[in-house]
Structures are given as C-alpha cells and as structure tokens.
C-alpha cells in the first residue's frame, strides 16, 4: 500500500482525491436537490420519501450512504488542506501588483466558498437532520420542519448565500474535476466549461427555490 500512499500524496494524487471525493459530493448534492423538489408535490410526499429512505435496505442504505459521504467530505477537506498548505509554501512572498487574466471569481474563491459551505453543511445537519438548532423540530415531519425552518428570514438568507457559494464552488469544481482526471480534448473543452456552468446553475436554482418558496408562501 506504500505506493498508493505515495501516489495519493503527490500533487496530482491529492488532486485526484479532491476530484473523486468531489464527484461523490456533487452527486449527493444533485440527488439531494432533486429529492427536495418533491416539496412542490404536496405536503405528504416529502415525509413519505423520508420514510422510504430510512427503510431502504432494512435501514442500512442510509447509513452506508452517510458513511460514504462522510468519508468523501473528510477526503475532500483533507486534500484541500494539504493542497492549500503546499500552495502557500510555494509562494510565501506575494506580488505587490497582480493582474488576473484567466482565473475566475469561482476559481479564486474555492477555498473560502469551501469553508463557508462546510460550515453551512454542519449547520444544515443540526438544523434539519438532528434538529438541535431548529425552532420546532419534529422527527419524521420532514415537510413541516422544512416550512417552519425556512420561515425564519435570517436562516433563509444564510441558506441562499451558502447556496450561491456552493454554485460557484460547483462551477469551478466540476470542470476542474474533469481536468484533473484528464478528461480534456480540444473539441470538447469549451463544452466542458458549459456543462459545469449548467450543472452548477441547475443545482443552485433548485436549492435557491426552497427558501424562496417558503418565504413567498408557495410552499406552506
């Protein structure tokens, strides 16, 4: 296993860890968002979906998924930490003046959007999964928890900010992942960026709609 550790600790290996864990995480984000869209299909569907998820595979599926997600999140954060440290060591003294030509807001803010999203995820788990920071959490009443939770304006505002940052993170993350695993071809490179943008926009719009729907009374 020595070779594997050495391989994964190289700069490209770390990037690979980042990319693969990223795939797991953005897969989850997409599924999560689609699952939540059921909120628009009446008050009971989401609750039933929750029951189904908990029961799947005699209750094991949920925990396996949680395990995988946790591992992916840890790997993602760990590789980000290692890469950041390497990068800071690579240029301790910066430039007095610097003009960016090609990098984007998304690429330059990955570290910060990542940290905010991480904080948000912890809050989100405490909010809707464990319920400790929820004003009136009822286990199993997914729809009700959803509506009550988002009625608090500053909570919804935080959700929306985090969602926008997640969108930025996804935009750079998705095309970056394709680049890291070597999926590049001059003919498709433009498409790659467009696909990343479309994916990020889809997830962002979906997630933004939830607090907005509650605040505007579309979902009650």
């Amino acid at each position: 296993m020595n070779w594997a550790l050495r391989f994964l600790r190289s700069s490209i290996g770390l990037k690979l860890v980042m990319a693969v864990s990223g795939v797991v995480l953005f897969g989850f984000v997409l599924v999560h968002m689609i699952g939540n869209l059921q909120v628009y299909m009446g008050p009971t569907l989401l609750d039933e979906y929750g029951v189904w998820l908990r029961a799947l595979g005699h209750g094991a599926a949920l925990w396996v998924a949680r395990g995988v997600l946790l591992a992916a999140a840890v790997a993602h954060v760990w590789s980000a930490y290692c890469l950041t440290r390497l990068n800071q060591k690579a240029r301790p003294e910066g430039y007095r003046e610097r003009m960016n030509r090609e990098s984007t807001l998304a690429s330059r803010t990955m570290r910060w959007s990542g940290v905010v999203v991480l904080v948000f995820i912890i809050y989100h788990l405490l909010h809707f999964t464990i319920g400790t920071v929820h004003p009136n959490f009822v286990h199993g009443a997914v729809h009700q928890n959803f509506v009550v939770g988002f009625r608090v304006i500053w909570v919804s505002a935080f959700y929306m900010i985090a969602t926008l940052l997640l969108g930025l993170h996804l935009y750079h993350g998705v095309w970056s992942m394709l680049q890291t695993v070597g999926l590049s071809h001059p003919r498709y490179d433009l498409m790659r960026k467009r696909a990343a943008a479309a994916f990020a926009a889809l997830v962002t719009l979906g997630n933004l709609s939830f607090p907005l729907a509650v605040l505007t009374g579309v979902v009650r």
């Binding site: 700069s11 390497l86 060591k89 090609e102 990098s103 984007t104 330059r108 095309w175 970056s176």
Partner: peptide, 16 residues
C-alpha cells in the same frame, strides 16, 4: 513536487 512548486487548481493563469 520535491522542488517546492505549488499544485494546479485550474485557474488557467499559466496558459494566459
């Protein structure tokens, strides 16, 4: 890596 270069985070500044 040993020489102490940083890692690629796909900014694209190099290409530009």
């Amino acid at each position: 890596d040993e020489e102490g270069f940083g890692t690629c985070t796909n900014h694209g500044e190099c290409e530009a």
